[in-house]
Design a binder for these strands. Sequence first.
DNA 1: CGGCTAATTTAGAGTTAGTCTAAATTCAAT
DNA 2: ATTGAATTTAGACTAACTCTAAATTAGCCG
Lengths: 134, 134
Amino acid sequence: MAKPNKTETGEKLTRQREAVLGVIREREDHPTANDIFAAARQRLPGISYATVYNSLRFLKAAGLVHEIKFGDSASRYDRETDRHDHALCSQCGKLVDFDLPQAAELMKAAARRSKFKPESVHLTLKGVCPDCCD
Amino acid sequence: MAKPNKTETGEKLTRQREAVLGVIREREDHPTANDIFAAARQRLPGISYATVYNSLRFLKAAGLVHEIKFGDSASRYDRETDRHDHALCSQCGKLVDFDLPQAAELMKAAARRSKFKPESVHLTLKGVCPDCCD
DNA sequence: CGGCTAATTTAGAGTTAGTCTAAATTCAAT
DNA sequence: ATTGAATTTAGACTAACTCTAAATTAGCCG
């Protein structure tokens, strides 16, 4: 049996979970669960749809991947797990990561206005990406 | 026949659309399409599910209601159509509107970082609402 | 090692939220 | 009244997940 790999924090990384994580880490873009399923099947032909979802949930809980949800269509997954913001192109749908350095103050300002005890802020810019602009 | 009501910009407001709009305008909270369907049925017993969705789409396009989507679960609808932000309670799920006056600069900052031509920014604070805090 | 228990995976059924279709109805304008 | 466009309806359909129950696999104990 292959040695049981572990995450840095000690969780079990099965072959299936490794395959899913591998797919996400190799991609520059933000694949959907379906994209990941297709790619994971190349590496591990028997892997099932449900397992991809289970693995995504597990990896997310372990902090190894990040899930991005917009109301429309499917969740995207991101190998970048540090806090960051997103820009979504209204023409081609491209999704780009960026970081807003003022995020911490922003969260405080939002907390003040809303009277909530803040946990996180999520900011999305909608607009037209450089490629679609010309 | 009842006189055909119109929106300020001249679109037709059928009985069904009026019922849906009425439901949203009367509520302080942010109902889902399903909630709206149930409430609209009280006013207009024959109204169908599909019509509620059609009406919501129409009213949204006419700028009379605002749709809020989080990845999880169903879209919420909001009678407040001016730009604003949301705070979502991580304990009870309550959704609160608030406005961040620095939104315009924020959009510019996000546009600079991402190189997108900006159209709108959407900000969501996740945290614990005052009711859940005590 | 051999057995035990818990965790994981699988296939496929089920669920949720919303869209689509085609027929019927309503409408506004001739 | 007639006509053509817009709207509504019921119900079938779809996408994206989630759940279930059975099978497999894995870590642990003696």
